[in-house]
């Protein structure tokens, strides 16, 4: 079997480097091309991962590719994903899927119209602790879910992440979508109401860096979520977290996606650090995407899942502006 030829369009998102490294370790797949407008960065990565660099993503799409990963700045996801879908190439798109609902909708519609897979990079669906809890919930042993409380706290990544024209928003957009996706997955229900407090803790930051979402799902589940970039850069032992509390009628569960860790007390950096040792969720996500490319079928997190998460995150901004809850409706 010929190796699957993958192109990465845009490496602005730091996850692109992770994906490139993981693909390099997998058999049956080849990173054929890396497209990025930044020549220095593009050449460096291409050399490091034994790939080729192209400045123009359209040129990269003329390569004999089987699949594409889009990891450009958020606001550029749409044009790159659409171009790949037009070329009938399955796409794994970095989250958030887009910076506007209409962009995400257009991407999903294009994928459906052409019958070409659009997957959203929601690696937490492949985190083993998260999956274990999903499986446990499916047994019904926790009863019916009544409440959820999530966190996806992190550090302010700076760079284009805090330039709204490229990122589409700050912490609330960046760190809401993962956990909303998990909440939708766990409940099997859509968010129908969003209330949010949003703010900026560091005055110099042009986007929001803290938020608090209060949610209600169609099936009555209520939830809270903290997407803040509130982890101190120097002092904190890790980048952040993904945690979820699930209250059911028969009990309660807590899952910490990065709870499997060593504590390292490092004299050379003068602080304690977490050293993760759990299974790599990104690896599971890439394997899932490659499976779909090879065999067809549906990825764990589709473009539609990416769209719904973006819808909720953007509703949070709308709510914070209006200082009242926003109702979401769905055409089904």
């Amino acid at each position: 079997m010929n190796p699957i030829q993958v192109g990465i369009l845009g490496v602005a998102h730091m996850h692109a480097v992770t994906y490139a490294a993981l693909l390099g370790e997998m058999s049956g797949v080849q990173l054929a091309v890396i497209a990025d407008e930044d020549e220095v960065r593009g050449r460096e990565l291409a050399a490091r991962f034994n790939s080729r660099w192209e400045k123009d993503y359209q040129t990269a799409l003329s390569f004999p590719l089987d699949a594409v990963i889009v990891a450009s700045e958020n606001s550029r996801h749409r044009e790159m994903a659409m171009a790949a879908l037009e070329a009938r190439l399955p796409v794994l798109c970095e989250k958030p899927l887009a910076t506007r609902v209409e962009d995400a909708e257009a991407m999903v519609a294009e994928s459906e119209r052409r019958g070409v897979v659009l997957a959203t990079a929601f690696p937490m669906r492949h985190s083993l602790p998260i999956r274990r809890l999903y499986d446990y919930l499916q047994t019904g042993a926790l009863g019916r879910i009544v409440a959820l409380n999530g966190t996806n706290r992190g550090q302010n990544p700076g760079g284009w992440f805090i330039r709204p024209e490229l990122s589409g928003g700050g912490a609330v957009l960046d760190h809401t979508v993962h956990v909303i996706d998990l909440m939708r997955w766990y409940t099997g229900s859509e968010v129908v109401e969003v209330y949010a407090e949003i703010g900026t803790m560091h005055r110099e930051c042009p986007v929001d860096d803290m938020g608090l979402l209060m949610l209600e799902f169609e099936n009555g589940v209520v939830a809270a979520h903290d997407p803040s970039w509130s982890r101190p850069r120097q002092a904190f032992p890790t980048w952040g977290d993904v945690t979820l509390e699930v209250l059911g009628t028969e009990g309660v569960a807590w899952v910490d996606a990065f709870g499997q860790r060593l504590l390292a007390f490092d004299e050379t950096i003068g602080k304690m650090q977490y050293v993760p040792w759990g299974d790599n969720a990104d690896h599971g996500m890439l394997q899932d995407f490659l499976r779909v490319v090879r065999e067809g079928g549906t990825p764990a997190a589709t473009g539609k899942d990416g769209l719904e998460a973006v819808r909720v995150a953007l509703a949070a901004y709308e709510s914070a502006r209006a200082q009242k809850p926003v109702r979401l409706s769905y055409n089904r």
Binding site: V146, E197, M210, A224
Partner: peptide, 25 residues
């Protein structure tokens, strides 16, 4: 505020979001 009920009519679990006057949440 949002409240959750398991079986009966009473709220048994609640989330309350507070925006403090100093801007903290």
């Amino acid at each position: 505020a949002k409240g959750a009920r398991r079986h009966g009519a009473a709220v048994e679990h609640a989330f309350v979001s507070l925006r403090m006057q100093n801007g903290a949440m």
